[in-house]
């Protein structure tokens, strides 16, 4: 590794901030997706179907 002595805290800080913000975004987006997937599965387990799928039967 190259010796980064100059302003190391700012460089590390900017990468950490990026990691934190983008990481939070990734986690939130994925969690939202799984929550919706689960809710849809629960509703379909109750026997509810979308109108377009009922018509196919």
């Amino acid at each position: 590794m190259i010796d980064i002595s100059q302003h190391f805290e700012f460089i590390l800080g900017s990468y950490l901030v990026t990691c934190a913000l983008v990481g939070a975004l990734v986690i939130l987006v994925n969690r939202d997706y799984h929550v919706q997937e689960k809710r849809l599965a629960d509703l379909e387990a109750k026997g509810l179907r979308r109108r377009s799928e009922e018509n196919k039967k």
């Binding site: 987006v29 919706q36 809710r39 509703l43 979308r50």
Partner: peptide
């Protein structure tokens, strides 16, 4: 996010 949003709309409709 788009997939989540489509699913959310389906959940609402159901």
């Amino acid at each position: 996010s788009m997939r989540a949003e489509i699913l959310r709309r389906r959940v609402r409709a159901l």
